[in-house]
């Protein structure tokens, strides 16, 4: 045992590899748990039972679905661009895994601590749009193409309010370092309780909902119009990777909201925010946010495309700009 510890301590590259494998495991586990919760909550809201057959309350359902998906073949359509068609799922999954490295889950539980952690996460998030575009185009299918085009228009529009609302927090703390931002909230007041940052938080939640392509903004994969949007042609584990990346993106969105506005790994009033309890606080906040997003998803109908664009360009962006100005004034005066 001692020898193994010494071995790992000397070979820190190996340690990195081990941590990366753990992160991949967390992403997959997150997708399984979230998939199960989504189906159960959807069923609860629609007054039906949801998965009930396998295991108590059907809790094994998602694992069995995963096994089924692994055993299926990836069929490449005849007219598709074979290389790009196979590349897209990988390109979708990789940035998600790379972002997880930089998330400060607790005081001492994180992959790397960058002094520009926020910019890193946003930069990696922008690669995600690429994979959607490539998937939609290379399938050579009208539904996929329309899904991808809607997705890119939506992502470009909603990236602006997300950046502006996060910038308000950056102005308040004057750092991009995620750990520093969390530490700045270790007092009794989290950033969400400041009036100007509360507005930023609401804008961030709405825009984040659109950025992760979830209902009521799920136009890129609107089932009734586009079958499944950009991943219509995908089967087997390639489809699975898209689903996992989608839940991974949801987790990232919720954890950025937690870090920037809800105090990260700080307990309420700085109560019990050590390395272990911090992780528990962090994960519970993230899961509460994600459950709220699910609740919204199954409660509101899908918006129309012009409504979607109007919301971004006419309301969210001007509001976040004004909010940023007010934040700058507040920071300058106080």
């Amino acid at each position: 045992m001692e020898q193994i510890i010494k071995f790992i301590q000397t070979y820190s590259l190996l340690r990195m590899l081990l941590a990366f494998c753990c992160l991949i495991g967390i992403i997959f586990a997150n997708a399984i748990v979230m998939g199960y919760l989504e189906r159960k909550i959807a069923a609860r809201i629609q007054r039906r039972w949801g998965p009930m057959e396998v295991g108590l309350q059907g809790w094994l359902q998602m694992i069995l679905d995963g096994v089924k998906i692994l055993s299926k073949q990836l069929i490449v359509p005849k007219d598709a661009n074979r290389f790009l068609f196979r590349l897209a799922p990988l390109l979708c999954f990789t940035p998600v895994a790379m972002v997880f490295v930089a998330l400060p889950i607790s005081r001492s539980l994180y992959g790397i601590n960058l002094n520009i952690g926020l910019i890193y996460i946003i930069a990696m998030g922008s690669i995600n749009v690429f994979s959607i575009l490539i998937a939609g185009w290379s399938s050579n299918n009208k539904y996929s193409l329309f899904g991808a085009m809607r997705s890119v228009a939506q992502n470009i529009a909603y990236e602006v309010p997300i950046l502006l609302s996060l910038l308000a927090v950056v102005l308040t703390t004057s750092t991009f370092d995620l750990q520093e931002i969390v530490k700045a909230q270790s007092g009794p007041i989290w950033f969400v309780l400041y009036p100007n940052l509360f507005v930023a938080f609401v804008i961030y939640l709405i825009a984040g909902c659109a950025e992760t392509n979830r209902a009521p903004f799920d136009l890129p994969e609107a089932e009734s119009e586009l079958t499944a949007g950009y991943h219509t042609e995908y089967s087997g584990f390639a489809f699975g990777l898209f689903a996992i990346a989608e839940y991974g993106n949801l987790f990232i969105m919720a954890s950025i909201a937690t870090i920037m506005f809800l105090g990260g790994w700080n307990g309420p009033f700085g109560f019990l925010s050590g390395p272990v309890m911090g992780a528990i606080w962090f994960l519970s906040k993230v899961f509460i946010l994600m459950l709220t997003m699910m609740w919204v998803r199954w409660t509101y109908p899908r918006v129309r495309f012009d409504q979607l664009m109007n919301l971004a360009w006419k309301y969210l962006i001007p509001f976040s700009l004004v909010n940023l100005l007010i934040t700058a004034l507040v920071v300058k005066i106080i």
Binding site: N81, F130, W137, M149, V152
Partner: peptide, 14 residues
């Protein structure tokens, strides 16, 4: 992404 968007509208994979 803007370049890809432009190409997507005009060209199909074959």
């Amino acid at each position: 992404i803007v370049l890809v968007f432009g190409i997507m509208v005009g060209y199909t994979p074959n």
